[in-house]
């Protein structure tokens, strides 16, 4: 295992930035976000989780699918230019694990998304383990932990004055080999890694039964959905901050007869998400939409990819204005069924 001094981090980022784009955790007007960084002193550590997740780096909210020229006469379509290498620094272990869920959606199906694939291949995730999870975290319920390595290329375990560096994938090893002068080999230090791995979150385990998706199958008209949906304001907050939500809308942006086709995030909570031509909407009220959101996360996703679509990062819980809590749904469904 290697050692990386905290003071070396900004010169590591500067060195990497010659040929890659750096997305690092910075504080901007009191909000910690993962954003493209040019001044490498500004990366910060005092956050539990960034407001946006690493999903922004690989599946951005607003992405150009193609440009087109003179739409109906002789149409020419032009795909975007290849993407640059990118590094996401300061990601949390739960967000890195969320990328594996998005990989299942965008890469494993019968059709794969080439833009996402290219960004993932050209992207490296450097994770910092969590020193103090807060009351919203429940990653341990999805067999992750504040020190988990799933989905990351390199994991840094913070100690007082240096980071213990653990390479997880080939990409990680190569990156360390290329910048060997900043790292120092200090032999195996498993006790630091284990101290993070078996750290319990404040919320403790919500211990989700493995067959929760079976139980949820018949629960389509359960009155519980009506009870939670009554509180929900119908904003897209929980779905946009969630690192595993992947629904998107394709829309054309026309400028005269040229223009582009863009892909933007969309939320099942919005009223026009399922609105069809002829004003037919099978999910007219918040009850159906709230049911769709939780059934997708706890039943449909598990049926298709055999994993729950949640990593317990706690963002939707912290940001929901009216406290709709996915762990509340899980515990209620567990007791009731």
């Amino acid at each position: 295992m290697n050692k990386l001094l905290r003071s070396n981090v900004s010169c590591l980022l500067k060195k990497l930035s010659e040929h890659t784009e750096i997305y690092a955790s910075t504080e901007e007007d009191g909000v910690c976000i993962l954003a493209k960084l040019d001044n490498y002193e500004e990366w910060t550590m005092n956050y539990v989780r960034t407001a946006n997740s690493v999903k922004d780096v690989f599946f951005p909210q607003n992405e150009e699918i193609m440009k087109y020229k003179d739409a109906s006469s002789d149409l020419k379509i032009e795909a975007p230019k290849p993407f640059k290498e990118r590094i996401a620094f300061g990601v949390r272990p739960c967000d890195a694990a969320a990328m594996l869920l998005l990989d299942d959606v965008f890469l494993k199906g019968e059709f794969y998304d080439s833009y996402y694939k290219e960004r993932r291949e050209k992207g490296t995730i450097i994770t910092i383990a969590c020193e103090k999870p807060d009351q919203h975290c429940f990653c341990t319920s999805f067999d992750l932990s504040p020190g988990a390595t799933e989905g990351s290329d390199i994991v840094l375990y913070p100690t007082e004055d240096f980071f213990l560096v653990v390479e997880v994938t080939e990409k990680g090893k190569k990156l360390i080999k290329d910048n060997a002068e900043l790292f120092e080999d200090i032999g195996a230090k498993p006790e630091i890694v284990d101290s993070y791995k078996n750290m319990r979150t404040v919320l403790g385990d919500v211990c989700i039964p493995n067959d929760l998706n079976e139980k949820l199958k018949g629960e389509f008209d359960n009155s519980y959905w009506k009870k939670i949906a009554r509180r929900c304001l119908g904003c897209g907050n929980c779905t946009f901050v969630c690192p595993t939500c992947h629904c998107f809308a394709v829309c054309d942006v026309a400028r005269g007869c040229d223009g582009k086709r863009a892909r933007t995030w969309d939320s099942c909570k919005f009223q026009d998400f399922f609105l069809m031509a002829g004003d037919h909407n099978p999910r007219p009220t918040q009850i159906e939409r709230t049911r769709q959101r939780f059934m997708h996360k706890l039943n449909y996703f598990k049926e298709k990819y055999d994993k729950y679509q949640c990593i317990g990062c706690g963002r939707c819980v912290e940001k929901c204005p009216v406290g709709v809590h996915i762990a509340d749904v899980i515990t209620h469904m567990k007791e009731e069924l």
Partner: peptide
């Protein structure tokens, strides 16, 4: 139904866990 991507990852056309487009 309303289908947006047609290739099964835009999460738009699901009835239960079945995607109409796939």
């Amino acid at each position: 139904l309303k289908m947006q991507c047609g290739v099964g990852y835009c999460g738009r056309c699901n009835i239960g866990d079945k995607y109409v487009c796939i």
